[in-house]
């Protein structure tokens, strides 16, 4: 099931929370919305899930528009809202039954769907408890279970791992990855490693606009540009710094704080200074202890794009 978003705009008063966004998501993709807080990630999700209407623009799921048939669209989407709101006074099983009924799961299939969700989300020991007795991690699982109860083709998860401990985060990520094999998944996050670990494709959203779109590798290489090396040379640091700086392909040399003889070396655009540094050491009879290429981190890409 593909999602097409066209020229979506949502205004809150004068402020545009989402500003003319367009993108397309193909069946089976796991897409991460990445952006600082207040960038418009949640608003975009709320529009796709038909919680609120956009000021202008359209969202279509397999050619069904949110303006023409929101009921049909809601049926195909499983949604975990931000902060995971739940009916706290309900027992887990009752809540899942309610979700299944209201999403139109046939009555004969409801018990098997509930059993499957409880099994899949690891809720077996908690299933008869009231939701308000559960810890945050288990509530999150209930939130995922209710989103998936009607076996939707699209899952939309708004910050699915906030407030979880590291073990729970790993579990939820694994669950999302599993789900991504059969479903189209959109998740939002401001944690980069999370998006990198779970998503096929990343949309960086900033101030209501799409700042970048691609896999984590393409995003990295797009902004990489210049080679960055970490070098360790055993010799007098002052001499080394001066010599390296005078090399033809080197743009910038910065000593690494607290480590004598270590430098960060940035090459000029479209040039490599690896060989030059090696030759320099050979000529001067210095020992080259280490030379590592530094990969641009997604954090840097993100910071560059969202500043």
């Amino acid at each position: 099931m593909s999602i097409v978003v066209e020229n979506l705009t949502k205004k809150y008063g004068e402020q545009k929370a989402v500003n003319d966004i367009s993108f397309e998501i193909k069946t089976g993709e796991v897409v991460g919305f990445l952006g600082p807080n207040g960038a418009g990630k949640s608003t975009t999700m709320k529009i796709i899930t038909c919680f609120m209407a956009p000021s202008s623009g359209d969202v279509r799921l397999d050619n069904v528009s949110i303006h023409s048939d929101p009921e049909a669209i809601k049926k195909k989407i499983g949604y975990l809202p931000e902060n995971n709101p739940l009916y706290l006074d309900m027992p887990v099983v009752e809540y899942l039954r309610f979700s299944a009924e209201i999403q139109g799961v046939p009555k004969s299939k409801i018990p098997s769907r509930i059993a499957e969700m409880i099994d899949r989300c690891g809720l077996d020991r908690e299933k008869h408890k009231n939701i308000n007795e559960l810890s945050k991690g288990y509530r999150q699982r209930v939130g995922l279970a209710q989103a998936m109860i009607h076996d939707p083709e699209i899952l939309i998860l708004d910050e699915p791992t906030t407030g979880l401990d590291p073990n729970q985060i790993v579990e939820i990520r694994k669950l999302i990855k599993d789900l991504g094999k059969e479903k189209t998944v959109i998740l939002s996050s401001h944690i980069l490693s999370e998006v990198e670990a779970t998503c096929d494709r990343i949309l960086i959203i900033n101030r209501g606009r799409i700042a970048a779109d691609g896999t984590s590798d393409t995003l990295r290489s797009q902004s990489q540009g210049q080679e960055l090396l970490k070098v360790s040379i055993e010799a007098s640091p002052e001499e080394v710094e001066k010599a390296v700086r005078s090399l033809a392909n080197v743009e910038k040399v910065t000593p690494i704080d607290g480590k004598v003889g270590w430098f960060n070396v940035q090459s000029k655009p479209d040039a490599s200074s690896r060989k030059e540094i090696f030759d320099l050491c050979v000529n001067n009879k210095w020992y080259l202890m280490e030379m590592t290429g530094l990969e641009t981190r997604l954090e840097d890409v993100f910071q560059k794009l969202t500043k």
């Binding site: 709320k46 899930t49 038909c50 919680f51 009921e71 809601k74 049926k75 989407i77 949604y79 809202p81 902060n83 709101p85 739940l86 009916y87 706290l88 979700s99 209201i102 999403q103 139109g104 209710q146």
Partner: peptide
Amino acid sequence: KAGTIELLITKAVT
């Protein structure tokens, strides 16, 4: 207040 209205509205109901 609890935000469950968002959950309810995004189910297949009017």
